[in-house]
């Protein structure tokens, strides 16, 4: 446990030793901020139009749902931006150790591969949660000036973190296979994107393949979370996905030691 924590701590700090973390944080915040602004202004415009219309026709104003019109599509947006951002977090997780030769330290000290992998995985996840903090602040504004339902926001973040952990485990696996960070980033992105779009093929596949592709698709399971529904099957999907990614990374690390 102490050793896993040591890896976690080292890895998390090292994000901030290099400018990478700051660059990712800045871009992620800027993009999510711009989209938040766009969704917010279109929502404000819509409710303004509604008020004017109700005054003109002397009708009771329609109650526009901020959760439905703003928060839900916004979560989809964050998920999409995460797809691009997470490979840049995971690319260095393992390949950096290989490139610098520090794997020789890790493999010759009494630390188990599982401790190395878990420490790194959670460091990546922790940085992702840091990335999400600004978006939480944006949404806090809605609570300050409006009256949205809280539970869908909570479920949305649970969904994002689960989705993120699935992406991170996939990216970590790619990172264990190469000592080149660029390849790790591109590979991680390609794998994540593939898992994202595989569901689109479901409509063409038909037969028995369609439900399989639908199930594999990483984003299909996110929909319920964005709507405020926490379904255990989706939680199980993400946890299973993450476990498989972590397991593959672990086997990769163990196998590297055996190959010539």
């Amino acid at each position: 446990m102490m050793k896993t924590w040591a890896i976690f701590e080292k890895e998390f700090k090292s994000f901030f030793y290099s400018p990478i973390a700051y660059v990712i944080l800045a871009i992620f915040t800027a993009l999510t901020g711009v989209f938040f602004y766009l969704y917010l202004s279109s929502f404000v415009e819509a409710s303004l139009m509604d008020t004017i219309r109700s005054q003109q026709y002397r009708m009771a104003p329609q109650k526009l749902n901020v959760n439905l019109m703003l928060i839900r599509p916004y979560f989809w947006n964050i998920a999409l931006i995460s797809l691009f951002a997470l490979p840049t977090i995971t690319m260095r997780l393992y390949s950096e150790e290989k490139r610098m030769g520090t794997v020789e330290l890790l493999y010759t000290t009494p630390i188990k591969p599982i401790q190395i992998i878990l420490g790194k995985f959670f460091a990546g996840l922790a940085l992702y949660i840091v990335l999400l903090i600004p978006t939480m602040l944006f949404q806090a504004l809605l609570f300050a000036y409006g009256n949205p339902a809280f539970m869908p926001v909570l479920s949305g973040y649970i969904g994002l973190i689960l989705l993120g952990s699935a992406f991170i485990s996939a990216g970590l696996f790619i990172s264990t296979t190469t000592e080149n960070q660029i390849i790790a980033a591109i590979g991680g992105f390609a794998l994540s994107l593939l898992l994202w779009v595989v569901g689109w093929g479901a409509s063409y596949a038909g037969g028995t393949l369609a439900p399989v592709l639908d199930y594999i698709s990483i984003i299909n399971h996110f929909e319920d979370f964005a709507q405020g529904v926490i379904d255990s099957t989706h939680i199980i999907y993400y946890l299973l996905f993450t476990a498989v990614g972590v397991y593959f990374s672990l086997k990769m690390v163990e196998s590297v030691k055996w190959r010539g």
């Binding site: 080292k10 090292s14 030793y17 290099s18 610098m100 030769g101 520090t102 794997v103 020789e104 330290l105």
Partner: peptide
């Protein structure tokens, strides 16, 4: 090891 296994940052 031949190359000191240090984290340069």
């Amino acid at each position: 090891p031949e190359n000191p296994p240090v984290y340069t940052d």
